[in-house]
Design a protein around this nucleic acid. Structure first.
Length: 721
DNA sequence: TACATCTTTATTTTT
DNA sequence: TAAAGATGTA
């Protein structure tokens, strides 16, 4: 008798779901039913009595993924998922550290710094140490600190190799001390503290190992070193780790993700086999063939080939536009055509490598009256006014939080200038107190400015209110007491901000606290750990615009991948990084595999970038896709045929055929700007500039591999390509 | 403190 | 180009 849980699963999925109690690596291709396998596995383990819901630990990277897992699990089984350990690495670490705050040497109400908060904390440390921000960019320092933390290194374990790294290490030391004193932890610290807690404390470690016989990990290819160490501490040899991932979709290496963890996992847990989920339920064959062909250019893969029973479907449409504007207009035309075919706007996506590309696309869409939605940008809890409001709440919860103090002590303005804060800071430093303590000291002596007194009274009232009323009421009171709402009401463009502040009250009243903490403390954790949706404006049917990174995990009926030019995608910066090109290729792989029915690949011969026109070569990624899967559409035809230019299938060669003579600076010159050329030594390139004529003619060429060079046409053997 | 003007810089960013 | 950050002026 088979469980209804297993119906509809293919053989590999079923094998994965019903694995006995052992560690396993599931290599899950794009669109292969990864989440289904993960959630069904959990349901299966519970239903077959192998574990109780409390004995499962499932970890994801995003809150969204965690929520989805939870939601799908409860549709599979009628269980109460409350209290289950399903969450993000950071969320679960937060839980762990709250439960063992003493052993972790943290105050019970420690606050969590998001990246913004961390950066300003680092700047504060640097100012205190009198370190020049010109010589040591705070952002670099932030990367230095996070990089080391993610490798599990405290300052003592760092060997400085020059002055620069020595200074950075010193900042790291002072930053740690400051965080400890203020009772705050950054994202990486959540992980590192948890790891150290588990390492140092055998009884705690054994407690969790006994509690969670089954550990499941989503998007395993995105784990960094520290997260893997964390996993190994929670799951010893007796525990069964079910890790699901896809090395071909590893696109966060630049943030410290370590694909090598997959190989290490195989070795460390003595895995004998990998289960591959290769049947794809999302895309038509041509799209999958393109993805497979592309990714085969990468070395050292675990190896995987996507297939489908859906048939080949439509060819992949490739379009080479003259300019970024033309590219955008082509997209508009095609979107209109797809709308005519009955596709909803929200079923179509425009993907690009970098956010700056959205501008031209948006402009064209706006002119055409096509509704669109851009992902990215600030999220709810990252907005300035919301951060200000949260700072008041943080001060009510934790009087030592100097970051919060500095953020709002003079906001709304209370006449406290830089000099009064400076004296306050030196008072605090010499007395070893927090700013709030020092401020109270000054206030008691009667020498404080009225603004400071007002502020301290406000914080006092908030602290008292926090104990007495429900969270939403506290937030509402805070908005009034602090003067934030009043301040933004007066401001000319403050209406949105007021609205966001009111939204914060709504968020507080809808907040469900499933922790042991007070509502306020839990809400503050929530605000740091879950910054909210990226620019959520749901409801309306709109075309989806986002970076390829943001598209990971999503799918659309039609996908446009725009800006497929050398230097942009693959990005030029990536070429100089170790594994950079391969990561770019994986990114392209992710982009392609988002499409269900229709895939468009577009590029522009010229593009406005940093205020300058740039000429890029066609991306190598286009060339890595077999021509037999593609249909080339081209604009590079005589103008009189332009009425049907989008419908004409063109062979590849003709697509780049140059061009009208008026584009040439000199009529007798053999090369024009933007033309693709090849050179015996330097290889493929594109013409940037033409100068002179006849025997003196020179051209500047941007070579794919050799960079920008001037060539004298009298000598150089340059041929059109 | 607020506003204007200048300089600088420009991938991607789950938490 | 155009946005953010730093510096200068009323």
């Amino acid at each position: 008798m088979t469980s209804p849980l297993l119906t509809g699963l293919n053989a590999e999925q079923r094998a994965a779901v019903t694995l006995p109690r052992q560690s396993a690596l599931i290599l899950a291709g794009a669109g292969s039913g990864k989440t289904r396998v993960l959630t069904t596995r959990m349901a299966w383990l519970i239903q077959t009595g192998q574990v109780s819901p409390q004995g499962l630990l499932a970890v994801t990277f995003t809150n969204k993924a965690a929520r989805e897992m939870l939601a799908r699990l409860s549709t599979l089984l009628p269980i109460n998922t409350r209290g289950m350990w399903i969450g993000t690495f950071h969320g679960l670490c937060n839980r762990l550290l709250r439960a063992h705050f003493r052993e972790a040497r943290l105050p019970q109400l420690f606050q969590i710094l998001d990246s913004q908060d961390q950066l300003s904390a680092i700047k504060r440390v640097m100012r205190a140490l009198n370190i020049d921000e010109e010589r040591h960019a705070p952002r670099q320092v932030q990367q230095f600190i996070n990089g080391h933390k993610e490798e599990g290194r405290r300052p003592a374990a760092i060997e400085p190799f020059d002055m620069h790294s020595r200074v950075q290490r010193d900042i790291y030391i002072a930053y740690e001390a400051q965080c400890q004193k203020e009772g705050v932890v950054d994202f990486a610290e959540l992980l590192l503290r948890s790891v150290e807690l588990l390492q140092a404390n055998e009884s705690i470690r054994e407690h969790y190992r006994a509690r969670f016989p089954f550990v499941l990990v989503d998007e395993f290819q995105d784990t960094n070193r520290l997260q893997y160490v964390w996993l190994k501490l929670l799951a010893g040899s007796e525990n069964a780790v079910f890790a699901v991932g896809d090395d071909d979709q590893s696109i966060y290496g630049f943030r410290g993700a370590e694909v090598g963890n997959m190989r290490d996992f195989e070795r460390d847990y003595g895995l004998t086999e990998i289960i591959r989920l290769e049947q794809n339920y999302r895309s038509f064959g041509n799209i999958l063939d393109a993805a497979n062909a592309l990714i085969r250019h990468n070395q050292g893969r675990l190896g995987k080939n996507l297939w489908t029973t859906a048939g080949p479907g439509q060819p992949i449409r490739v379009f080479e536009a003259g300019s970024d504007g033309d590219e955008a207009r082509f997209v508009v035309e095609e979107v209109r055509a797809l709308l005519g075919d009955g596709l909803a706007l929200s079923e179509m996506a425009l993907l690009y490598r970098s956010n700056a590309q959205s501008r031209v696309l948006e402009h064209a869409l706006f002119s055409a009256g096509i509704g669109y939605r851009v992902y990215g940008g600030l999220r709810f809890f990252e907005r300035m006014e919301v951060k200000h409001a949260l700072a008041y709440l943080r001060l009510a919860a934790n009087p030592d939080d100097d970051g919060a103090f500095l953020r709002v002590v003079n906001f709304p303005p209370r006449g406290l200038g830089a000099r009064s804060l400076e004296t306050l800071q030196s008072h605090a430093a010499s007395a070893g107190q927090s700013l709030q303590q020092a401020a109270r000291h000054v206030a008691l002596s009667g020498k404080a400015a009225t603004g400071l007194n007002t502020f301290l009274l406000c914080v006092d009232r908030l602290r008292a209110t926090a104990e007495a009323v429900p969270l939403a009421e506290l937030v509402s009171a805070m908005l009034e007491e602090s003067g934030l709402v009043q301040h933004y009401r007066q401001e000319r463009e403050g209406a949105d901000r007021v609205e966001n502040l009111e939204e914060l009250v709504a968020a507080a009243s809808g907040f469900e606290n499933d922790s042991e903490l007070s509502d306020l403390a839990a809400f503050l954790s929530h605000a740091s750990l879950e910054a909210g949706e990226h620019e959520a404006a749901p409801g309306a049917d709109a075309l989806q615009l986002m970076t390829v990174h943001a598209a990971k995990g999503l799918e659309f009926q039609a996908v446009f991948v725009c800006g497929l030019e050398e230097g942009l995608f693959p990005h030029e910066n990536a070429l100089s990084e170790a594994d950079g090109l391969e990561e770019e290729r994986r990114l392209m792989y992710v982009a392609i595999t988002r499409a269900r029915q229709r895939l468009y690949l577009t590029r522009a011969e010229s593009r406005m970038l940093h205020g300058q026109v740039r000429y890029g070569l066609r991306s190598r990624f286009i060339d890595e896709i077999p021509e037999s899967l593609c249909r080339w559409l081209s604009t590079a035809q005589p103008a009189w045929k332009s009425s049907d230019r989008f419908l004409t299938a063109m062979p590849k060669r003709e697509a780049t055929t140059p061009a009208r003579s008026e584009e040439r600076p000199f009529a007798n010159q053999p090369f024009r700007i933007g033309q693709s050329v090849s050179h015996a030594k330097f290889g493929a390139g594109v013409v940037l500039k033409c100068e002179g004529s006849g025997g003196d003619a020179r051209v500047q060429v941007n070579f794919r591999d050799a960079g920008v060079k001037w060539l004298a046409l009298g000598f150089a053997r340059l041929t059109p390509s």
